[in-house]
Design a protein around this nucleic acid. Structure first.
Length: 484
RNA sequence: GUGGCCAUGGUGAAAUGGUUAUCACAUCGGUUUGUGGUACCGAGAGUACGGGUUCAAUUCCCGUUGGCCACCCCA
């Protein structure tokens, strides 16, 4: 109420001024004294940030549950690291030249002047935890999973936010193709369980030594073709030659095709290792695509690298649902024993995007089917019970009945406040309730209660004591038909 | 970091350099007493922010903020 009044008061004077004076004095002065500075209607969201609303609840819950049960069933333990870390952790591990470090970190000083940052990824934190807690003395490998928000101060775009979430798995302490394959399987199964068909793009970038030998060769090759390359690619020859292979420029394609491939420069060991990873994937029937030009943007990768893409989508760099690889040097780099490790991370916002795209496609298909005259069977509605109550006494009694039902695992909705029956039924209807329980004065007196089937409008009067059993029957009947 | 497009009630749209900014959906209330979906009536709610041009700006220009998209890079 007071809010309304304030607004009216604020509006009134402006009206008067417009009516009386002919705005000749100059509206600027009028504006300044009249309206007391307009503020934005509400504080806006920080750029690249996003609220996750109840309408998307099921996506996020499903993802978490899928991640949890999958990780658990593969023997990964939950590890949660802090969101704020010492900045140097990431600067050292991700590499100074990388964009993530150079321009995308949420970097600030804490109250004591310590340089800290919001984690831009999980792997380094998990590696830090591995070293800090002396996990190398535990039976190897250590398999852990993480889940939560990451921060990158990047320009927002489709499927890209400044705060985003990842599901992450790491296997630390074993150098074996089986570990790489298992990680890929978990990532793949996560997406499959959520209903997404994907392909794994995979490559091996060998050891640091393999790569430096290859780079010499690649740069020499690119230099020889320099004049034919796009401007962007010319720059990258010195900045990040591997990235030239990723160029989307038309004119670069032929040159890229003919460029030396890293696969040919791998040491025997790395090559054999990679072959074994692929053999595992064949055995497990994971669809994969050899991508000789796949390189990843973080410095710490060695040997296996992979990314997961939706099967039916045109491949673009930003619609990778996730990726990962082996990082044999990372643990040592942050001060641990030399320890082999591998992991992956999946971008959950991108997964949601993809799921929504799929959902939309399904809706279109349904619409088309209806147009064509063969509408699909209406889905069985999920049972949902609403409890309507009238009058103070009945409301009090209703509350305790509802409480009891909830304790017994029977979920019922109701509307808080003193509402008319009409009002409550309307509300129930909007919530797509299948049955409504009604308790008023009359029922209160004779110990009965009404159960209304919302679809048919048929009402049944039952004994209050039998309410729970009746409701359970309803819930069961529905689940039965669903199974059928 | 670079570039393009954009900003009107909660949502989706419309309109105009000049009295009261239109519509739909949604929300809330009503069409008497204890029965929803339909219908009818009504209410609340808006030109993102700041500046400039102009007699007059929601409309034109600039800046800020934010959104969408691409590049870069990544999830």
């Amino acid at each position: 109420m007071p809010v309304k009044n304030k607004k009216k008061v604020a509006k009134a004077p402006t009206k008067k001024t417009t009516a009386k004076n002919v705005k000749s004095v100059g509206s600027k002065t009028k504006k300044k004294e009249g309206a007391e500075k307009k503020q934005p209607k509400y504080p806006s969201l920080l750029r690249g940030m996003k609220d996750i609303l109840p309408k998307d609840e099921s996506y996020w819950k499903n993802m978490y549950h899928t991640a949890e049960s999958l990780a658990t069933s593969y023997g990964f333990g939950y590890l949660e690291t802090p969101i704020v870390e010492e900045a140097s952790l990431f600067i050292r591990t991700l590499g100074k030249g990388t964009d993530v470090v150079d321009k995308e970190m949420y970097l600030f000083e804490d109250r004591e002047g310590k340089k800290v940052c919001l984690r831009p990824e999980m792997t380094a934190s998990i590696a830090r935890a591995y070293v800090a807690h002396g996990m190398h003395v535990m039976p190897q490998p250590i398999k852990v999973w993480g889940y939560g928000p990451l921060f990158r101060y990047d320009r927002p775009q489709a499927g890209r936010y400044r705060q985003f979430h990842q599901f992450d798995c790491e296997t630390i302490g074993v150098h074996d193709p089986g570990a790489d394959a298992e990680l890929i399987v978990v990532a793949y199964n996560f997406l499959r369980d959520l209903g997404l068909e994907t392909v794994v793009h995979i490559n091996s970038i060998g050891t640091q030594e393999d790569r430096s030998r290859y780079l010499v060769e690649l740069v020499a090759y690119l230099r020889s073709k320099r004049s034919q390359l796009s401007e962007e690619s010319k720059l990258r020859i010195t900045k990040n030659p591997l990235r030239v292979l990723d160029s989307k420029e038309e004119q670069d394609q032929a040159i890229i095709e003919a460029a030396p491939q890293i696969i040919d420069w791998l040491s025997d060991e790395s090559r054999n290792y990679f072959m074994k990873v692929l053999e595992y994937l064949d055995e497990l029937e994971i669809p994969y695509l050899l991508q000789p030009r796949l390189v990843r943007g973080l410095d710490y990768y060695t040997d296996t690298v992979f990314e997961l893409y939706p099967l039916d989508e045109e491949v673009r760099s930003q619609n990778a649902l996730g990726g990962g690889g082996r990082y044999n040097g990372l643990i040592e780099q942050i001060g641990g024993q030399p320890t082999p490790a591998a992991g992956f991370a999946l971008g959950l916002e991108r997964v949601v995007l993809e799921l929504k795209r799929l959902e939309e496609k399904k809706q279109v298909a349904i619409q088309e089917a209806i147009q064509a005259g063969n509408p699909p069977e209406a889905p069985v509605p999920t049972p949902k019970i609403f409890f309507a109550h009238l009058g103070d006494q009945a409301s009090r009694r209703a509350l305790s009945l509802i409480e009891k039902l909830r304790r017994d695992g029977v979920v019922v909705l109701h509307r808080i406040g003193n509402n008319s029956l009409k009002n409550q039924l309307e509300f129930a209807n909007k919530q797509q309730v299948t049955h409504t329980v009604i308790l008023g004065q009359k029922e209160l007196q004779d110990g009965s209660i009404i159960i209304r089937d919302m679809a048919s409008g048929i009402q049944e009067i039952v004994d209050q004591k039998k309410l729970k059993r009746e409701l359970e029957k309803i819930l069961q009947r529905f689940t039965m038909t669903e199974i059928k």
